[in-house]
């Protein structure tokens, strides 16, 4: 065992990189669920974002344009889900699952001729002054742009939900669509916007994998990150900062266990390997002790079909 070979600064920095895709997808899904819609297609939207971002970034040579394309790609796929569930009133669970399968297939098709190509390099920001602070500078202020964008999105979502009228309406729609409808709010329109926001965030998360974390295009490369994002939303009991905590905890344990293995810490590998999931379940259990569904924060109308005639 050689724990000294793990550099905590480098470790923390790589944790932030490993967590960002799940964080982006989870914060988007949280907004969707806050509006009362359960979209299980996160994985499909992520992988679509991953391929759109990669294709556009390699074609234009600009990762920034790639990320924008990824957000648009994810949002378009989400729009499909929104149309089916909000206008045609299809079952949300089934449609979400179908969206994942569709996204995986579609991305494989789009990405066929992009396997093995290298993505343009995304440079790390070197924020003047802040980046030069010893210790903290290395951990916090020398990342690529998207790490900060993801945190900014979390902060924005928190502020909007907590302080603005728009946030209040979104929550009202998620808690009781009938009441919101009676008050004159356009339930379907609001949900469509939330769904598109969720798709755009998932797309960004996917593109972060294909453009920065890995960076390359391979079929099925998100490998279940979308499902983890869904779990993190529940784990966070639908609160933005807890989504951040959950994503960093999960990403952190994932990276940490690989580092511990590389340092040959005498802990059974099987245990290390399942630790991210184990800890997620554990925290979930602790948080839900003696509390009901309402206390957990699930929107009351989550997953229920709304039709104005009801």
């Amino acid at each position: 065992m050689d724990l000294s070979s793990i550099n905590p600064l480098v470790l923390l920095a790589s944790i932030m990189v490993a967590s960002t895709p799940i964080l982006l997808a989870a914060i988007g899904e949280m907004v969707v669920e806050k509006s009362g819609v359960l979209n299980l297609g996160v994985e499909g939207m992520m992988i679509t974002g991953a391929v759109c971002g990669f294709v556009i970034a390699t074609e234009t040579g600009s990762p920034a344009v790639g990320f924008i394309a990824a957000a648009i790609g994810g949002a378009i796929l989400a729009l499909l889900f929104g149309f089916l569930t909000q206008y045609l009133l299809s079952n949300q669970v089934a449609t979400g699952l179908a969206l994942t399968l569709f996204g995986l297939g579609l991305s494989a098709l789009i990405g066929q001729s992009y396997v093995g190509i290298k993505a343009p390099v995304t440079s790390n920001l070197h924020i003047p002054l802040l980046a030069d602070i010893p210790v903290i500078g290395r951990i916090l202020f020398q990342h690529d742009m998207m790490v900060y964008v993801s945190i900014a999105i979390v902060a924005a979502v928190w502020a909007v939900l907590k302080f603005t009228r728009a946030g209040l309406i979104l929550r009202a729609v998620g808690e009781s669509h009938d009441a919101a409808h009676a008050l004159g709010y356009k339930v379907v329109r609001i949900r469509m916007l939330a769904i598109m926001f969720g798709g755009a965030c998932a797309g960004l998360g996917g593109a972060y994998v294909s453009l920065i974390r890995v960076p390359q295009w391979t079929e099925g490369m998100t490998a279940g990150a979308g499902w983890i994002a869904l779990a993190i939303v529940v784990f966070a009991s639908w609160r933005p900062w807890r989504v951040l905590l959950g994503a960093y905890l999960f990403g952190g344990v994932t990276v940490l266990q690989l580092n511990l293995q590389a340092a040959e810490v005498p802990v059974p590998v099987a245990l290390l390997s399942m630790s991210p999931y184990l800890i997620t379940i554990l925290v979930l259990v602790i948080m839900s002790i003696n509390r009901g569904r309402a206390a957990l924060g699930a929107p009351a109308a989550l997953g229920r079909v709304f039709h104005a005639s009801h």
Partner: peptide, 19 residues
């Protein structure tokens, strides 16, 4: 503990390189 997970394989490679 996977045959195919680009994200995880990349993290693993990085952990090894960092050490």
């Amino acid at each position: 503990y996977t045959w195919f997970d680009p994200g995880k394989e990349s993290d693993a490679a990085q952990a090894l390189i960092e050490q």
